[in-house]
Structure formats: C-alpha cells, structure tokens
Deep mutational scan, measured.
Amino acid sequence: TETYTFDSEDQAEEFAQRAQKKGYTVEKRKENGKFKVRVE
C-alpha cells in the first residue's frame, strides 16, 4: 500500500484513474488542503 500526495485535485484524479486502469484499488481523500491517493 502506497499513499501519494498531490497539490491539485486534477493531478490526484488523473493518477487515480491510471492506477485503477492497472487494476489497483484506489482511495482518494482530501486532507489539509492536499489530495491524497492511497493505492493497493
């Protein structure tokens, strides 16, 4: 499980979609103005 942090929602969304296409489970959340994407 890895967590990635992005400054913009667009970046987080793009990353999450790519990860989902590769078959990963993706969980997105906003925390302290940053966008976190957890991938497993």
Rank of each mutant, 00 (worst) to 15 (best):
D7M: 06
D10W: 12
G33L: 03
Y4N: 02
Y24Q: 08
V39H: 01
D7C: 13
E31C: 08
G33A: 03
Y24R: 06
V37S: 00
E27R: 06
Y24S: 06
F6A: 00
E14V: 06
T5E: 12
E27V: 12
Y24M: 11
F15D: 01
E9R: 04
E40Q: 13
Y24H: 11
K36W: 10
V37G: 00
A16I: 11
N32G: 11
E27C: 14
F15Q: 01
T1C: 14
T5A: 07
F15L: 03
Q20P: 01
K28I: 15
D10S: 10
E14I: 08
K22R: 11
V37W: 00
A12H: 01
F15M: 03
K21W: 05
E9M: 06
R18D: 11
E27H: 13
Q17G: 07
F35L: 03
A12E: 00
E2T: 14
A16M: 13
G23S: 02
Q17A: 12
Y4K: 03
T5Y: 13
T25Q: 12
E40S: 15
Q17K: 12
R18V: 10
K28H: 09
A16T: 05
E14C: 14
K30V: 13
R38A: 08
R29C: 15
E27D: 10
N32C: 11
Q11S: 08
Q20L: 14
T1M: 12
G33R: 02
A12L: 02
E2K: 15
V26M: 01
V37D: 00
E2M: 15
T3I: 12
Q11A: 13
D10L: 09
A16R: 04
T1P: 12
Y24P: 02
N32E: 10
Q11W: 05
E13W: 06
V39G: 00
K36N: 08
K22P: 06
G33H: 04
Y4G: 02
T3E: 14
K22T: 06
E31S: 05
V39E: 00
V26Q: 02
K21V: 06
F15E: 02
E9N: 05
Q20F: 07
F35T: 04
V26W: 03
A19S: 05
E31M: 05
E40D: 11
T25D: 10
K30I: 13
K30Q: 12
F6G: 00
T25Y: 13
A12N: 00
Y24C: 14
V39N: 00
R38S: 12
S8F: 10
A12R: 01
V26I: 08
A12S: 04
Q20C: 11
R29Q: 10
K28D: 02
Q11L: 11
K34A: 08
A16Y: 09
K36E: 12
K22Y: 14
V39Y: 03
E27G: 04
E13F: 06
K34N: 05
K30Y: 15
K34Y: 10
E13I: 07
K21F: 06
Q17N: 10
N32L: 06
Y4S: 02
K30D: 06
R29H: 12
E27Q: 10
A12D: 00
T3V: 12
E40V: 15
V39A: 02
N32Q: 08
E31F: 05
T5I: 13
R18F: 09
T5S: 09
F6C: 07
Y4V: 04
R29D: 08
F6N: 00
E9D: 08
E9W: 10
E13M: 06
Y24V: 07
K28V: 15
F15H: 02
G23E: 02
R29M: 14
K21D: 14
K28L: 15
Y24A: 08
Q20V: 12
D10R: 09
V37Q: 00
F35N: 02
K30L: 12
Y4P: 01
K34D: 03
E14S: 08
R29V: 15
V39Q: 01
K36M: 15
T5K: 03
K36I: 15
Y4H: 07
S8E: 09
E14H: 07
K34E: 06
E27T: 13
V26H: 02
N32W: 03
V26E: 03
A16F: 10
G33V: 01
D7A: 06
V39C: 05
E14M: 08
Y24T: 04
T25W: 13
A12W: 04
K34I: 10
T1Y: 14
E31T: 04
F15T: 01
G23D: 03
D7P: 04
D10Q: 11
K30T: 11
T1S: 13
T3S: 07
R18P: 01
K21P: 00
T1K: 09
S8Y: 10
Q20T: 11
R18Y: 09
R18E: 13
K34M: 09
Y4W: 11
F35W: 15
A19M: 15
R18L: 12
D7T: 07
K36Y: 15
T3Y: 12
K28G: 04
D7K: 04
E9P: 05
T1W: 15
V39L: 11
K22A: 14
T1G: 14
T5N: 04
V37F: 00
V37T: 01
G33W: 01
Q20E: 11
G23P: 00
E14N: 07
F35G: 01
K28P: 03
E40Y: 14
T25N: 11
F35H: 05
T1E: 10
V39K: 01
K34R: 09
R38M: 13
G33C: 05
F35P: 02
E14T: 05
T25P: 07
Q20R: 13
Q20K: 12
F6K: 00
T1R: 09
R38G: 04
E40R: 13
K36G: 04
N32D: 13
D7E: 10
K28Y: 13
Y24I: 07
K36H: 14
V39D: 01
V26P: 03
Y24E: 04
R18I: 11
F15P: 01
R38L: 14
T25R: 11
D10V: 10
D7F: 06
R18G: 07
E31K: 03
A19V: 10
Q20G: 06
A19F: 10
E27L: 08
K30R: 10
Y4F: 12
K28R: 10
F6T: 01
S8L: 08
F15A: 03
K30A: 11
E13H: 05
T5Q: 07
S8T: 14
S8P: 00
V39R: 01
E13T: 08
Y4I: 04
E9H: 06
R29T: 14
A16N: 02
F15Y: 04
Y24D: 05
K22E: 15
D10E: 13
R38K: 12
Q20S: 11
Y24W: 08
E40G: 12
G23A: 01
T25K: 13
T25L: 13
G33Y: 02
K22D: 14
K22L: 15
R29N: 09
E2Q: 14
A12G: 02
A19R: 04
A12Y: 02
K36P: 02
R29F: 15
K36V: 15
Y4R: 05
K34H: 08
S8K: 07
A19E: 07
T1I: 13
E2I: 15
A12P: 00
K21R: 10
G23N: 03
T5P: 02
E2V: 15
G23V: 00
R38I: 15
E40N: 12
S8C: 09
R38D: 10
T5F: 12
A16W: 04
T3N: 05
E2L: 14
E14Q: 09
Q11F: 06
Q20W: 06
V26F: 03
K28T: 15
E9A: 08
K34W: 07
K30G: 06
F6Q: 00
A19T: 05
K28N: 06
Q20H: 09
R38Q: 10
E14F: 06
E27S: 13
T25V: 12
D10Y: 09
E40H: 14
T5M: 09
V37N: 00
Y4D: 01
K21H: 07
S8V: 05
R38C: 12
V26R: 00
E31W: 04
D10M: 10
T5H: 06
Q11V: 09
G33S: 04
Q17M: 10
G23L: 02
E31Q: 05
A12T: 01
E13P: 00
Q17F: 07
Y24G: 05
V26T: 09
F35M: 04
Q17W: 07
G23C: 03
V37P: 01
F35S: 02
T1Q: 10
V37M: 02
Y24F: 13
